[in-house]
Amino acid sequence: MSKDNKANRWLTAALLTPTSLWFLVMLIFPLIVILVFSFGERAAVGGYAGGFTLEQYANLPSRLKAFQNTMLIAPAGTLLSLIVAYPLAYFLALRVDRKYKLILLVLVIVPFWTSLLVRTYAWIFILGGRGIPTLLEFIGIEGVRLINTPGAVLVGIVYGYLPLMVFPIFVSLEKLDKTLLEASSDLGGSPFKTFMQITLPLSKPGIATGCMLVFILLMGEFLIPAFLGGGKVFFIGNALVDLFLQSRNWPFGAAVSVTLVVIMLITVSFYMRMTLRNKTGRDESLM
């Protein structure tokens, strides 16, 4: 028996070795390097020179605009996606005939698994000079500029991440016990009251998951602001590309990356704590 156990343990270790190696070399080691570099100095030719200084972090305000844009537009984009996604998820989960439900859901999700690059590019086309602005000129409205504005970036965000928001909300609404809805209307609750007191609270887990997924991806976004913000509306991601590939200021770029990850961890754990508290609150009120 003990021989069996020993063999088992060896097998477990062997199965986990490649993954552990990957985590070590491709995740932990690079993150340590970035952390170390962020306390270093910039070499004269670019790249990294050793040392220990907080200069890079003190220099962060020089990229304040990128942080401001990200911290404003990422939450706004998440909220907007939620507002657009919720009615659709509601419709798909509770109002659509069972026959068409699956196919419609697949139709929502498919775009997410196709190239974000190409899909964002489509909006350069639509919002750019010869797209909607030309159409507007046709009916007499002139001088409208759509591309390279915060609005364009927001449209790109909602377009790119809508599927990711719809799916978890759909799942939580689908799981919802329909007899509760019937009970509410039988007891004379108006549709609005039923929605506010039953449907909405019970779909909170889905809302929380969707918002977190979208928000996390938006914090590191590069493509959408690069294409639709045109150098005017830029995120931390765009600043990072500039720092590493154009000005080759590695230590400062490292400091920006570390700050981005820290901000993300803080917001996400704060958010999780908030939604968890809400959840227990709801459980108590149900009892």
Binding site: L27, A254, S257, V261
Partner: peptide, 9 residues
Amino acid sequence: IPGIVIGIA
């Protein structure tokens, strides 16, 4: 972790 941070690191 954002893809951009993985790429840079």
